[in-house]
Each structure stands twice: as C-alpha cells, then as structure tokens.
Computed example of a mutant assay.
Amino acid sequence: MAEFPCQPESTNRRLQSILDLLSSAGYADAHKPDITAPEKLAGGLAWCVAALNSPNSQIDVVVSSETLPHEDNKKEIEEALRSLKCPHSLEASQIRNLDCESIFPVVQWLLERVRDGKDENQRKVGVVSQLQQLRERISMEGAETKVQKFASLMQSLKDMEKKESEFLSYSGAKRYQLEAEVIYLKEKIAGGCDSKSLSDGLDRSLSESAEELNSARKELAATLRAILAVKRQLDDVPSQSELIQYERRLSDLYGHIQGKHQQTQKHYDTYNALLEIKELMLKETSLLNSISSQFQNAITSTAGRMKLIDSMEGIVKGSQQKLQKVRLGLEEQEKIRDALKERYTAAIAAQRQWYSLLKAFQEACAKNERLRSSTSV
C-alpha cells in the first residue's frame, strides 16, 4: 500500500481505498507518483462527473495530468455534484484538505451511478438486438399475420427485461457493498484487528454470499426456463412453407368433399325421381282399378255412362294439369342447363385464351434467354 507523507495513518488508508476504487473503475491517473493526492482526487471526481455527463455514460473519459482540475475546477466539481443531486455534500476545501471521510461516499455514489448507466446501456443494446432478430425472423417466416399472437410474447419479454434490469441493479449495488466490505476488512487487517473475530466475520460473509449465490442461480434458472418457453412458442408458429403445405392439403380436402357432395346429391336426385315415378305408377294403377270396377255398373244405364264420362274427363283434365306442371319444371331445368352450357363454353374459351397467352409468354421468355446468352457471349 502506498503511503502519503504528512498525513495520519487513517487518512492514508482511506485515501488509498478511494484511489483503489477509482483505479478499478478505469481511472488511469489514480496511482501516478508525479501527481499530488488532491489533484488525484479532483481528477478522479472530474472523471466520474464527465462520465456521467457523456451521451452514453460509458467509462471512456480520459483525464491526463495536463488536464487535471485546478482550484476553479474544484469549485465546478462542487457545483456539478449539486446539480447531479448527490446525497453527500462535498466542498472544494474538503478536496484540497484531503477530507477522505467525506470524499469516500461521494466517490462510491458516483461510481455506482456510472456503472449503472453502463449496465443500462448494455441492456438496451441487447434488447434492441433481440427485437431486430425477432423482426427478421418474423419477416423471413412470413408470419406478419401472427403479430397479434406475438403481442403476449413481447409482453413476457418486457417483463423479463424488467426483472433483468432489477437484477442488474441489485447485483451492482451488492458488488459495491462487497467492495466496500473488502476495503473495510483490509483496513481492519492493517489496523491489527483480532484474527478470530475477523475469521468469524468472514465465515458469516461467505455463508451469506453462498446463500445469495444459490438464490441468484435459482432465479437465473427460472429466467432461462421462461426464455425457453417463449422460444418454443415462437417455434410453434408455422413457417411459410408449412402454411403453403397446409393450404394445399386443405384445398385437396375441399375438392374431395365437393366430389363426395356432388355424388351424394346425384344419389338423392335419383332417389327422389324414382320415388316420384313410383307414386305416379301407384296412382295410375289405382285409377285403372277404379275404372275397371265402375265400368261394368256404369255401362248398363245412360246416367251411369254420363257419370263415367264426366269422371273420365275430370281424370284427363287433372292429368293434363299435372303434365303442364311437369313441363314447366322441365323448361326451368332446361334454362338452367343452357345457362350452365353458356358458362362452360365461356370458360373453355377463356382457358384457350389463357393457354395461348401462356404459350406466348413462354416463347418470349425463351427468346429473352437466348438474347441474354448471345449478348453475354
């Protein structure tokens, strides 16, 4: 551990802890021997503030010995901390006088904010990448019509992202807490603390850390299971080729059903026609039997003959009406037949025209290919 002359031992240890934190976060000038301690602290604070004010909050700000803050810049650091709403107050005189007990919590808070911003940006980049991959997959599989089904999946993804953000925040805070505990233990070791109490404290810390690690592993396993479930749901969505195959199979099934329907309808029509013929034949037989039974009695008298003649005329009239009704039905069926024939003839003509156009198109394509091949040669 580097010592800083003319300072108490406790101040040196706290100053070294602050510089270790800054160095672990990426501040390059934390351990340069040619820079004074106040300049290192001011430079580290300025580095943290600049990292927070950068557009992406990335820890890539370079503060060299030529650009270290002067006295006026220390005032600016004080104002910047107030504008950032730092919960710990810090004045320029405290930086100049190496008030490490006041500077240490400020540095911890700034580094936590910087690293939280970096984690948040990385998470956003990951989410944007996942969304882009999801859009590409949707576009490739031709599943634009399935967007509504993906809404619930996207909501699940957002929930998992929220849980991930909370976990990152918790892990970041826990990390800084552990770093602070490590620094505290180093100070206790340097100060000659009781080894037994220190060992007991370390055992408790290890036990608590092991429990937290197991809990984090369980949460991670649950998150992975949820992600796998979402992926399986995405895989359940049929691809474009599968949709085409389903459509072809459904079309074949529809054609088969139509054929069966037409065949069944034909059987029904045949049955109805035969049933009607049967009824007519039964009526004819009944009529002939009635005439035969009444003829012998009616022929013996004039009144009977007249009654028989009237009855026969009524039968003839009813038969003519029935015949007229059948003829009207036949005419309607003939009209339907003629209309279907006209439609069939028009369809045949259109088919021939399409065949001729297709043939002309194929010939034009072949001619185009020949011209291309001759041009390329």
Score class of each variant (00 low, 15 high):
Cys6Phe: 14
Glu9Pro: 02
Arg14His: 06
Ser17His: 07
Leu19Asn: 00
Tyr27His: 03
Ala28Met: 03
Pro33Arg: 10
Trp47Asp: 02
Leu52Tyr: 03
Asp60Met: 09
Lys74Val: 07
Lys75His: 13
Leu81Gly: 01
Leu84Pro: 02
His88Gln: 06
His88Ala: 02
Leu90Pro: 00
Ile103Tyr: 02
Val106Asn: 01
Gln108Pro: 01
Trp109Ile: 05
Glu112Gly: 01
Gly117Asp: 02
Gly117Tyr: 01
Arg123Ala: 14
Val125Glu: 12
Arg137Gln: 09
Ser139Asp: 09
Met140Asp: 08
Gly142Thr: 03
Gly142Asp: 00
Ala143Leu: 03
Leu157Met: 09
Ser165Ala: 11
Leu168Tyr: 08
Ser169Leu: 08
Ala173Arg: 15
Ala173Gln: 15
Glu181Pro: 01
Glu181Cys: 06
Leu185His: 06
Glu187Lys: 11
Ser199His: 05
Asp200Cys: 09
Leu202Phe: 11
Arg204Phe: 03
Ser205Lys: 06
Ser207Gln: 10
Leu213Asp: 04
Leu220Phe: 12
Ile227Leu: 10
Val230Met: 09
Leu234Tyr: 01
Ile244Gln: 08
Ile244Lys: 07
Glu247Thr: 04
Arg249Gln: 14
Leu250Ala: 14
Asp252Tyr: 08
Ile257Phe: 14
Gln258Ala: 14
Gln262Asn: 13
Leu280Met: 11
Lys283Thr: 10
Thr285Asp: 12
Ser286Ile: 00
Ser292Met: 10
Gln296Val: 14
Gly304Asp: 01
Met312Ser: 13
Leu323His: 14
Lys325Tyr: 05
Glu334Gln: 15
Lys335Met: 05
Asp338Thr: 15
Arg343Phe: 04
Tyr344Asn: 15
Gln362Arg: 04
Glu363Val: 10
Ala366Gly: 06
Arg370Gly: 01
